[in-house]
């Protein structure tokens, strides 16, 4: 029986993803570029949920969602649902996804990301009164395009620091 280890790596990558989600661009960059910001948190979480499905938990993801809510200024509970949803899909499909090619994985990630983005947009419009726009579709696309690279990077980290 192997001892459980490497959980810190999952946490550290999620922390890095959170940082990447709040770093803002210089004011000289046009406003619309901001809409293309990849959804790092969902992408990283989704990767871990199928690559190390036994080390990710729905409730942990949901609780971490509160931190993200506060960080990006969403109503409390919103990101928890999206993140738990990403972990849930990863865990349920992990046997299948592990056999997939990089392209197929990006496809599944796109689905998960789109669903999360849709839930967030609807909740923001309803709870915060923001004006609905189709820009929310941009970030999942960009993230899915980057997902193979992200998965490679995370896999390399995982080989270096094993997660069991």
């Amino acid at each position: 029986m192997n001892p459980r280890r490497g959980g810190w790596l999952i946490f550290a990558t999620l922390l890095a993803a959170m940082l990447a989600s709040v770093v803002h661009l210089p004011a000289s960059v046009p406003d619309w570029i901001g809409h293309l910001r990849p959804d790092w948190i969902i992408a990283v979480l989704f990767y871990w949920s199928f690559a190390a499905s036994e080390r990710t938990g729905l409730v942990e993801a949901w609780l971490l969602g509160f931190v993200v809510d506060v960080l990006v200024g969403d109503p409390l509970g919103l990101n928890g649902a999206c993140m738990a949803g990403a972990v849930f899909s990863g865990q349920v499909l992990h046997e299948r996804i592990r056999l997939y090619s990089a392209l197929q994985r990006a496809g599944v990630a796109l689905g998960v990301l789109l669903l999360a983005a849709l839930v967030r947009e609807v909740a923001r419009v309803l709870a915060l009164g923001t004006t609905p726009s189709f820009w929310f579709l941009a970030a999942p696309g960009v993230t899915a395009l980057l997902f193979p690279l992200l998965a490679l990077a995370l896999a390399a980290l995982r080989r270096r620091f094993p997660v069991r």
Binding site: G77, A81, A127
Partner: peptide, 16 residues
Amino acid sequence: MAGLCVASGALVAVDG
């Protein structure tokens, strides 16, 4: 999962 979603929905409604 469903439970978490319901809890989230309730929280969002309350917080909003």
